[in-house]
Each structure stands twice: as C-alpha cells, then as structure tokens.
Write a protein that binds this DNA or RNA. Structure first.
Lengths: 216, 216
DNA sequence: CGCAGGTTTGAGCACCCTCAACGAATGTGG
DNA sequence: CCACATTCGTTGAGGGTGCTCAAACCTGCG
C-alpha cells in the first residue's frame, strides 16, 4: 500500500491541501485564511517556507505510516504557532480539525531579528514534544487520558469544563492508544465521579486533584 | 516516595551533579570538562543558563517518575549540542553514559546573533523528538529496536558496525520497553542473521535492508 | 423517520511486562 | 593467578494491559 492509498483510509480526511489556498490573497499575507473542517493545511513532502498561527479553531499535525497507523504529534489551539519542521520540506500532515482560521507568517530566510522571535516558539514546541514523549514511553492508558484532560484544561485557561474539538479517534492517535481504550478510560473516570460528560465532546472535570494524581 | 529517593533507586547513578564542575575554570569557559561514567551534568530543578557540546563520549537525558520509571528522551553523541529546556530551570537529568568530555557554551540572554546560531540546533532537537514520538506512540518492540539500530548507525556515519556506549537498560528506557524485551528482540535479529553481536555493546548490521524494512 | 458517522461496550487474544533463574563479563582481594 | 562478588545480559514461564473484532447505541442531519 502506498502512502497515498493509506492516506485515503483515514475516514475524516477530505482534501490533501485546502482549496482555500488558491483564493488566498498572496503568500506572505497577514490575512487569515478559512479552512473548513477536515481540510489539509500542508502535506508531507510539500515545501515548507511558512509558519502558521491559529486564529480560531484547532489543528492536528500527524504522520501516516504505510500500513495506515497514524500518530498525531501535536494539537494546536487558538493563538498557537506551528509549522516548524527543520529542513525545507514537511515531514508531517497538518489538517483543520474543525472550521479554522489560519494566519500565515512568511519566514524569509535572513530577516533581521527573525530568529529571536522564532526561537522561543521553537523551544516551546520542543518542550511540548518532550513532555509528550514521556507520556508515550512510560505511562499507561489511564495516565495518558488523565494527562490529556489536564493538558487540554490548562491550555483552555484552566476551566473545569473542557471543550474538545477533536474526535475520539484523534485523541487515540495522539495518545498512542485505540479509540476503544480511550472510550473505556473515559467511562471509568465518569463512573468514579472524576469527570462528567455533558456532551460527547465536552468534559467537565469534577475532581481535578484525583485527575492530577492519575496523570503523574 | 520523593523524587530524590526514587533517584537513588537508579543503580548506575553516582552523583547528582559532577564534582568536576567545581574544578572547571569559570562559567562560560570554552575549555572541555571531563565527566566520569555515570556522573551527572545537570539535574531536574537546577537553573539552566548554558548549553553543552559533547567533545567525546556520550550523554543520556532523562526524566524520572516518582515511582522509579525512567524515560530517556535523547542520547547525545560526539559533536552534538544539548541543554535546551525552555524556561530557566531544567526539567530533565543529564548524565555521562561513559567517560565524556563536555564543552560548555554560555547563553547570555541577548548576545547579538545568538538566536541565529541556536535556532537550527533547536530545530534539529525538535525534529528528533518528533521522530521519537512516532516510534513510542505507534511502533511495536521489533520496530523500535530496528529503528534504534538504524538511527545509531546513521549517527555514527552509516557504518555497518555500530558501537553502543549505553547499556541495555538505557536502550530500554529510550525505547519505552523493558530490558528483557530489548534483549529478546536482539536475540531474534541475530537468529535471523540480520545482525551479529561481536561484543556485548557492539552490533554488526548484516542485512541493512531487512532492518530498514522492519523499522518502517 | 431513516441513514450515517461517531461512540460505547463486550469477549477473546496477542504482545509485552513481571518475576525468576541462569550465564557471561569485569573487577577485587587474597 | 585464582576465587569470589558484582553487575550486566540472556532466557524462560506466566500473567495483565491494551488491541482486535464485533455488535449495539446514540446523535446529528437530511
């Protein structure tokens, strides 16, 4: 199976790259571009000469294996900058999870002081990747889900009600689990009264301390 | 169990921070410092205001969980720069795997053009972390070990004989496996004639293509 | 109301971990 | 130089966590 064939097996994928790019004013523009749910922002193998900032909505960045396995390396929420991928070509796919607005940032190679702005952003990405690494390498299913809920809550201002823009499949592919395991862990957390599920993609953290203890 | 107690449970740890620092000329010096095998270079919680370059030897960077679990986030071999950890305090431990020479690089906050030098190094670290993430999230034991051997070979110039400075325990904690599983996979690779083991920490890649196919 | 996609729940199994014993290599002291 | 201790690595048996396969259940939407 080629990568492209495998690509089609992901059910919620619609387009390899977003058609909206065609109607974008001009590269380097600071105008936000609208990306419909499921549409691609960039693809593995494409040239990478820009950065992207989420204006509203959410983005998933992932790698696809030849046999269809998928690993999401990061979610990007409102305000966050992404698109760093060393070298000059992308090694990951980026897609809008839901209806999303993206602001493009040109990365002209040697603009004065550009590296000073980029370095902190790159370092935050590095720190996130390192934390994620620990989770994938040494935590069990319950710990992963608990850590994910805490992370999402904190990235949304620490509120007790967390709105998840992504599907269970996305969560599973982010945490290195299966959708069934994610669902089972959430059910068990609900049974224990640690969380409640007001809606499918809305989670209320009832006992944050218990969740914190699990995530460690 | 406190982190400090857990710290003691790691058998091959000798000192929290290397005594050699005391005898180092002055911070910011470009003189290499010798670190004996197993000695610490920096510790979780310490202030981080320097970068480090491996002159010879090898370094492991890891996080310790309260219950003793360990995840090595990266190995650093000769020539590589490490020590990036966002914020101002370290969130990981760094130790010499074997007798190692370290060159310290001062990171004065706003030296002109410093970010231009640092950004490529940070981006390489980010790329490595992202690749490692895929491995930990979606690959099975055999794939992880195969990928590790390929990675080590390529980082040592692509030679067929790979010298591993680290123990099986280190490999296991890097790959998110147990030492027994690592050992079993290596034995199976040897039985299949894909590798041979001239010495305990020396591995010869006999069928590189087969190894590549497994790692994918 | 019926369909489709997403989610939940269950039963069985596979892979990897745990526990344990053995073997090999290295260093130390007699 | 050898006996011994210690650490590291290998191999085996058994068990548990999470995956696979499958079916039922929502929920939004035409």
């Amino acid at each position: 199976m080629t990568l492209h064939e495998a690509f089609r097996t992901i059910p919620d994928h619609r387009q390899p790259t977003c058609a909206a790019w065609a109607s974008a004013p001009s590269p380097g523009s600071l105008q936000p571009v609208f990306i419909p749910a499921g549409a691609g922002i960039y693809a593995q193998g494409e040239k990478s000469d820009r950065l992207y900032q989420v204006e509203f909505g959410a983005v998933r960045v992932y790698r696809l294996f030849a046999d269809g396995r998928r690993q999401i390396s990061a979610f990007h929420l409102c305000g966050e900058v992404f698109g760093f991928e060393a070298h000059s070509t992308h090694h990951f796919f980026a897609e809008a999870i839901c209806a999303t607005g993206i602001r493009m940032l040109r990365t002209s190679p040697h603009r004065n002081g550009l590296a000073d702005e980029l370095l902190p952003v790159a370092l935050q990405g590095l720190a996130r990747a390192q934390e994620h690494l620990l989770l994938l390498g040494r935590q069990n299913a319950a710990e992963r889900v608990a850590a994910f809920l805490i992370e999402m809550s904190e990235r949304q201002g620490g509120l007790d009600t967390v709105e998840l823009p992504m599907s269970r499949t996305d969560i599973a592919d982010y945490l290195g689990l299966t959708i069934e395991t994610v669902s089972r862990v959430l059910s068990r957390l609900r049974q224990k009264g640690i969380i409640s599920l007001p809606a499918l993609r809305s989670i209320e953290i009832v006992k944050r301390s218990a969740l914190r203890d699990m995530a460690a």
